[in-house]
Amino acid sequence: MTAAIPEPEITSVNRPYWEGLKQGQLMFARCRQCGNTWFPARPECPGCLQDDWAWTPSAGQGRLISWVVYHIAFHPAFRDRLPYNVALVAIDEGPRLIANIAAPHDALHADMRLRLDIAHIGAFALARFAPA
């Protein structure tokens, strides 16, 4: 039996993010005071330090900033997936996140357009992307 993918640690702060993904929605944090946007969830806005912010739905469009391809597995759950990619993606609303890209590695290039492609993995869902 293969090892399970490490599950995200759900907290009171990040729960809406993970629940949103299960329902097909990627959400980022937007500060009501200063307009700052960010991933991942944190209780205070790192721009103005206020705690007056809201989860905001993303349209699910973005572009590829950079990516890497793992040739060794640092966790047994990823041994069968080698080689696999991990990417840095900027969504069009501004903030950036770590993700996987569902595409052949030789098709990846900087600034390529991406669309959200949520993957459901057991009890949780992950924001992955695919070529737009």
């Binding site: 490490p6 950079s66 990516w67 597995a73 966790h75 991990v86 992950l126």
Partner: peptide, 23 residues
């Protein structure tokens, strides 16, 4: 593991530098 992004397979010190190298 790099926080909750470990679910993507985002592990290790090397990988962060690889992201900069590629860029």
């Amino acid at each position: 593991p790099r926080g909750n992004d470990a679910a993507y397979g985002w592990f290790s010190t090397a990988a962060g530098y690889a992201m900069i190298h590629r860029n």
